[in-house]
Design a protein around this nucleic acid. Structure first.
Lengths: 224, 224, 224, 224
DNA sequence: AATGAATGAGCCTTCATTCAT
DNA sequence: GATGAATGAAGGCTCATTCAT
């Protein structure tokens, strides 16, 4: 244990192309495609041009590699993007639209882009591992809170209010549905092509749908 | 042929406690918990108090057992429930609310009730098997079409219209989010208890949210 | 054991088409194709339109069925054919030619004809079972002795003489080679087609080859 | 790729006692005894004092191990022996006798010697695998061609002539019969002991038998 | 710092066989 | 007289992991 260096390397981008970095990169794709359990170390090592024992050497464990992948994905610059988008908005309405659009776009290029952790999340939902709490805390939580802030302003309710939360779920549910149910939607709607324009259309629809609903909910609520 | 009885027997409830039925019952739970690939025949057979070879005898295959479980879940009386609920409604608004409520209730008690196939579906989404098209065709498709019929009346657009489809996705996305993101929501909203009343609250919220949005969308669309 | 009727049925052609007969018929083909060990009871029973347990019921064992097949093949009318052919001959030379021709013909239609036990023998040579001594005693031995009788007359040596035996082996070896090495010969001599004329040519060649050799051997031996 | 070393290593005798070599050695015996299908990996690994997974690691497959055994046997120094023996002969008659003798000797001590692939071939004949064409091409073919060359000179016919081929089959058939029919001959001729002198006697007999026959066939053929 | 070799547990499947009916 | 159902043993294969170097 004293010889396993998988902990004292907090700077992952020190070396240009060490085995460690190649492993994380390959693992991201494999975990995204198959999930934690179904992914095999051999597959990852083959893609990373590394030895089978490399994973155990660098990360002690399959689970260690998985955690490293998540930590890497969370630390990547791509993460705060949706919230940043929202910050640039002048009105809460625009902020909501920007967030929706950013989340939608993020969920597309899952397989290649630096944000394929969305697909990892999908697997995590189907079969949660011990990493779920950490992911929720560091990735999902902040986004969830940011959205509640926006909704709080739109609804005139505190972020902790049940209505605010349920509205947040309604919006997030609409967005992630296109990622979660991707294969099913492909079968139910064969003509659908996920082009960039189509993505815009969907984002606009979700924005309209949600803002209309929120406006009415606010009115009805203020009358009570 | 006389030795391979894994063709679907017409009267599955003839005998009081046949191994075949016990296997399907146990498999439902195990598949729901772990998904097709991660589930092990040994686990299933142990829970069903059956021999490891029983699966091969009755269903030829792990895949055969999986198909049988899906077929059983689809054929179960629980399946048409959401659509039936909608048929009893007087207005399309009520029909929509009934469908939402039925789907939500269905998604709860996944582990024990006859409808744990919702959790199976979740795994199927994360890692589609060859059974996905069949499930879509026989389970999801009809519900999707029923919902589009209702929305078609509410929106004044044909069921095939893009707006109708996107509204359907918006509603379904809101509903299934509570199933898909269950563990995450549990972490983000620790006080939430999924009691029967809470379920009603959520169903009402999704109904309100969606009907408000639809009404506005219809108005805006008719002005164009 | 008292209830297993697989022994007291010495008359196999009593009933027109009982399961037992169908099993033996199917087993002959399967054993001929795959040998004793590689043949599976399920395959046999499926082809015989019988239950998996039928073999154990009628023959107690896979080995029991195998023995029954051999007994059936040995008792069949086709067996003494080569020797009968030899008896009809006027001279020992003709007797030898007739035997060679009969053995060659017999070895062809192995798969369908009633004499597919030749292929069973091939498997028995590769992996002898406990049935080998019985087969040698009842099938091969008589043919071997008949051939030695003929050779004894041709060579002027007793049937037990080493030269007689080695000549018998030389002739039998030539003949069975076309059966044993069938797949190899097919690869080494792709143009070869095992038509009836070709069979005649081969029989004539082996007859010429052997009779020339025997004549010379007799001469040389008588001078010593 | 770094993890799959089952590609043939150029220097198989580098290490004194590597698992790979022990596996091949054990597999040779087991395959010779039971044939490809009936042989079990567990048996081989037990005899080789290796883990069950070692076969998968070194040869990917049971079939991979089988191929390696064949390749090893074919590459062994013992292979070209019969042809080399023939090359040292002054006359074609002597060449033929030398080949016969070498083949006969080779077929003995199948179980321990480096040439137990003869018994493997026997299984291959009874139940051909995908390896048969390769074996024919690399082992049997060259011997067959060498013998046809010799016979061509003895008969005055081209190596491709039907008579040449049939004579080759006659000789090869006589020789391999002692290997193929070993157990049967043992039962038919209990006094036979396969001593070295007996092997010489048999070789001489087959040589006499065949050369007499060939001489006569050549005469008869030249008169036509 | 990194790897080739080896390991043991576990998986799915197939087999011959038995038992109750 | 015959069968559907069930069983335990075994087989080939894959996996994550470890160890000596």
């Amino acid at each position: 244990m004293a010889t396993t260096p998988y902990v004292p390397t907090p700077t992952p981008t020190d070396h240009p192309d060490p085995t460690r970095a190649r492993l994380i990169d390959a693992a991201r794709l494999v975990f995204a495609e198959h999930g934690f359990q179904a992914a095999t170390i051999r597959d990852i090592c083959t893609r990373a041009n590394a030895n089978v024992a490399a994973v155990n050497y660098h990360f002690r464990d399959k689970a260690g590699l998985y955690l490293a992948v998540l930590r890497h994905s969370m630390g990547a610059a791509g993460m705060p993007e949706p919230r940043e988008a929202a910050l640039r908005a002048a009105t809460p309405e625009e902020a909501l639209r920007l967030m929706i659009s950013a989340m939608l776009r993020r969920m597309q290029n899952q397989s290649t882009g630096p944000a394929c952790h969305f697909r990892i999340m999908l697997h995590e939902l189907a079969q949660p591992t011990e990493a779920l709490p950490r992911v929720v805390e560091e990735i999902i939580g902040p986004n969830y809170n940011a959205m509640r802030e926006i909704l709080s302003r739109l609804l005139g309710k505190p972020p902790d209010h049940d209505l605010t939360r349920m509205c947040a779920h309604s919006i997030i549910g609409q967005v992630v549905h296109y990622a979660h149910a991707g294969p099913v939607i492909g079968l139910l709607w064969p003509d659908l092509k996920m082009t960039s324009e189509r993505l815009d259309t969907i984002a606009t629809h979700i924005g309209d749908f949600s803002l209309y609903a929120i406006k009415q909910l606010k009115e009805k609520n203020s009358h009570e």
